[in-house]
Amino acid sequence: MYAQMVKSEPTDRDPTPEEQAFQARIDAGEKIEPKEWMPEGYRKTLVRQIGQHAHSEIVGQLPEGNWITRAPTLERKAILLAKVQDEAGHGLYLYSAAETLGISRDEMFEQLHSGKAKYSSIFNYPTLTWADIGAIGWLVDGAAIMNQVPLQRTSYGPYARAMVRICKEESFHQRQGYHIMMKMARGTDAQREMAQDALNRFWFPSLMMFGPSDKDSVHSKQSMAWKIKINTNDELRQRFVNETVPQAEFLGLTVPDPDLAWNEEKGGYDFSEPDWDEFYEVLKGNGPCNRERLGARVTAWEDGAWFREGLTAYAEKAATRRAASATAAE
């Protein structure tokens, strides 16, 4: 997902009375708010998870942003620009939520730029044709929604509220992607070829977005007890495949998995696992676009330093001038 493989901070000792009371509040469905007491592990895990999610939003601007200047019509240009702009907004909401936990946005940027903080593996894949813009909206946003909808009920108030706003705004993202795919799948031979190729390249990376199976992971168990993770990775992945395969069929496109088959008994599709070695390599920095993506973020940040400093300096001067004229008026 946008936050893949977030390490939680489980403890092996018995919970203190404070921790027990905290867990009881979560079990009762109460929201935890900033400045309320929380276990340090809860705080750290949240900072890591929300941070990863935020980084994914702003790094996620880049693969799609790659096609804004080549969008094929004025309307498509406006739609794509609005969508990628939304992602900047979602990053902003999430950074703000993390900031309530005692970390600044600049500190989180530093962690991203130094490689210490991660972002979703999916954004390290290239966008090669216009159909990729369709595939990203349809598959990548579709996979993200699977995770984000339940997160609206997460236990940390600011995070839950950010997710509510994000889900509301994202409702058009997946649809615009599918709409592009419909046009392409029903278009010329060249367009159909692009559409199929995009599905071929984005199918398995989309399945990787949910992260490796975590049914035995201690981190996941702790995060689920804290309600900062709502479903297991496998549950969400299965749900995604079940919903997406009929959509691909409707387009007349072929999911690139020879072992894909409906399983009557479980009421869902059987499907092949993605190549997890590839996944770990991408996380390590060896995906096709890791360098470009991180490089673009670092450049934007460094090139923008004088702009941010200029505005700060003006604000300080203006405040001094105001204070001086107030004194003079007395």
Partner: peptide, 23 residues
Amino acid sequence: VGSLHASDAETAIRNARDVYTRR
């Protein structure tokens, strides 16, 4: 509705207009 960063109050108002009233 949320938060944002800005160098001063006037800029914060403009940023809020751009970030939080897009719809």
